[in-house]
Simulated assay, not measured.
Amino acid sequence: MRIRVIVFLVVLLLLIPPLFLLAGRSLAGPAEKEKPMSVGEVLGGTPAEGFSRALVPRSFRFPEDHGAHHGFRNEWWYFTGNLQAIDGRHFGYQLTFFRVALTPQEVKRSSHWGTNEIFMAHFALTDVQGKQFRFAQRYSRAALGLSGAGGKPLSIWLEDWTARETASHPWSMQLTASEADMVVNLDLQSLTPEILNGEGGLSRKSATPGNASYYYSMPRMRTSGTIRSGKDTFKVSGLSWLDREWSTSALEANQVGWDWFALQLDDGRDLMFYRLRRKDGSVDPFSAGTLVNADGSSRALNSNEVRLEVVSWWTSPSSGSRYPSVWRLQVPGSQLDLRITPRLEDQELMANFRYWEGAVAVEGVGGAPKGSGYLEMTGY
């Protein structure tokens, strides 16, 4: 699913001072007096003519499709994971690279600063036992080596935040990101094949033609490396999840937000589901997901197959937004009954566009498996 990058396109164009785009910039959140934009404000409207659209299913080719897809307006590489240190200390992390095209094709310019693409990145670390959630964001133009995505082996970077391909079979990446009070240096190796979401990788967001994306996931990537939280460094291991999506799409006027779940279960299954919400509080019928079996096979889930219930709520002391806190998610046809709890209540990213995204624990109900995962909530 992951339609969020359209948010950042508008943010980049409307909120970021032009000087910041001359070089990378790292911020803890939006300017103090800056009013965050709502989902409805940033996802409405019609994209400019000339961009490619996700209209029909396509043939995917790997490892080529791990790289950039120029011609589409939005694209992202979305890494999240739950990791443990040798002493059992638990961490969640998010490292995301967004590519946003300002024009359908690159225009030749005499200046070396000239480019038609902008990159944005989010880096977050959840230190569960330390009860700390840290977040930083950066953005830069794709010029003079400041940011970009491409090459063989593939590299995605924004300054010294990087995701670099280290092997193609099985596909493997090295992630590095550093801020004053948090550092990750992680090696990821895929344990499952690429999982195509939606209709063979075409993920429709509404009935409007082109309101869709090409979307695949790598739900299990064995992960090891080091994390620094504050002054302490830990050797860690666990599982990561990669979401990949590219599109030129927008929400419908009556769609106000979404809840996205990426869950890795102890019986070897993985579950992705996103619930699109309408202004009247109802669930949009284009909500959908994918259930991946332990053998790597998968099947699409429609909105009628998944039951979601909010068990409790949490109000952010920073933004005043009220988010669901504990969830119950059921897939009766697959004997799944799951209670989903945040590992820390406050995992709200105070970015130019504010949203909640963080590590969650999964408890099985009635014999269902337990597990870990990530949850994203927007539009609250």
Rank of each mutant, 00 (worst) to 15 (best):
R134Q: 15
L239H: 14
L271G: 07
S147H: 00
F133Y: 15
D284L: 01
A149T: 11
E117S: 15
L188C: 14
S319Q: 06
T208V: 15
T192F: 04
N211E: 10
A167H: 10
W327I: 03
L202M: 09
E345W: 05
L344G: 08
I118T: 10
G371E: 05
A142I: 00
L344H: 06
N211Y: 02
R277G: 08
W171K: 02
G40I: 07
D160V: 07
F51Q: 01
W258P: 05
V183Y: 12
S287P: 02
F91P: 14
D232E: 15
T223E: 05
R2P: 02
D232M: 08
R354N: 13
L146P: 00
A68S: 13
Y139N: 08
P317R: 06
T192L: 12
G198I: 08
S178L: 12
R61Y: 06
W157E: 06
S224D: 11
N74L: 04
E348S: 04
R89M: 10
M182V: 13
S297W: 01
E348W: 06
G24Q: 11
F286N: 02
S237M: 04
M350A: 13
P369I: 12
W327V: 02
L154Q: 12
G230T: 14
R220G: 01
G371Y: 07
V128I: 13
G130W: 02
E32C: 03
L265G: 06
A300F: 01
T46L: 08
L329V: 15
P63R: 00
V360Y: 07
F51N: 01
M377L: 14
